[in-house]
């Protein structure tokens, strides 16, 4: 060994898309776009309190967007796919990172919402599919008839079924929890965080999640209570 050894680096590293940090950034950006949709959708839906004329007009407006609507839908679907892809590949990696688990393991710092992202995500996804089948395509519309174009009727009829509302409320609470972690987490993943901002961001994420959840839940609750019929 009398000559200098070459640098021991030999393996090529994965680039942005292959790295854990890059994938988390993908998750953050797609999550943010989906968050924008969640807000827009909520604002649209709240028009149910203005009565059938207004809501149905809004529905017609969306349908008349034509190609634009499909572009938006396309972006959203792409985001959902990328969001899930990133989650899945990272989940698999994380599972492999600890082949032998602990006999005893306690959590000391994370919240329930933090630890249940892997559950809240798929359940919300299942809900979204159900939701599309119920209110967009009308494939599932238990105990009443789906009238294409009469959004108001479909909403009231749908939520009048107690278990539909219960399922909706449950899924929206999970969405709230998902947002509570995700909204703060995306700043962290994109590196836009600073020690001074953390407490503010965490509080803001909590309140935004609560407001969004409360906003959505107000619809089935009002239907069941008979305030909207």
């Amino acid at each position: 060994m009398s000559t200098a050894v070459a640098s021991p680096r030999e393996n090529r590293a994965p680039g942005f898309w292959g790295s854990t940090n890059g994938r988390k950034a993908v998750m953050a950006v797609t999550g943010f776009i989906l968050f924008l949709f969640v807000i827009g959708h909520l604002l649209g839906n709240l028009q149910v309190f203005d009565g059938p004329v207004r809501l149905n007009a809004y529905g017609r407006f969306l349908h008349n967007l034509g190609e634009l609507l499909w572009i938006v839908r396309g972006i959203l679907i792409l985001c959902v796919v990328l969001h899930i892809w990133a989650t899945f590949v990272l989940w698999r990696r994380n599972r492999d990172a600890r082949p032998i688990g602990y006999q005893v393991k306690k959590s000391v710092a994370s919240s329930y919402a933090d630890r249940t992202m892997y559950w809240s995500g798929p359940i919300v996804l299942a809900f979204v599919i159900f939701h599309l089948l119920e209110f967009t395509s009308g494939t599932i519309h238990p105990e009443s008839r789906f009238i294409p174009g009469d959004v108001y009727h479909n909403v009231v009829a749908g939520f009048s079924v107690w278990w539909v509302s219960a399922w909706y409320i449950f899924a929206l609470i999970l969405l709230g929890m998902h947002l509570r972690h995700g909204l703060w987490s995306m700043f962290q993943s994109l590196g836009l965080n600073h020690p001074r901002h953390t407490p503010v961001l965490k509080q803001a994420a909590l309140w935004i999640a609560i407001l969004i959840t409360a906003g959505y839940i107000s619809i089935p609750v009002s239907v069941l209570a008979g305030w909207v019929r």
Partner: peptide
């Protein structure tokens, strides 16, 4: 990444 560590979930 090459060492096989998992990813951060910011918890």
């Amino acid at each position: 990444h090459a060492e096989g560590f998992g990813s951060c979930t910011n918890i």
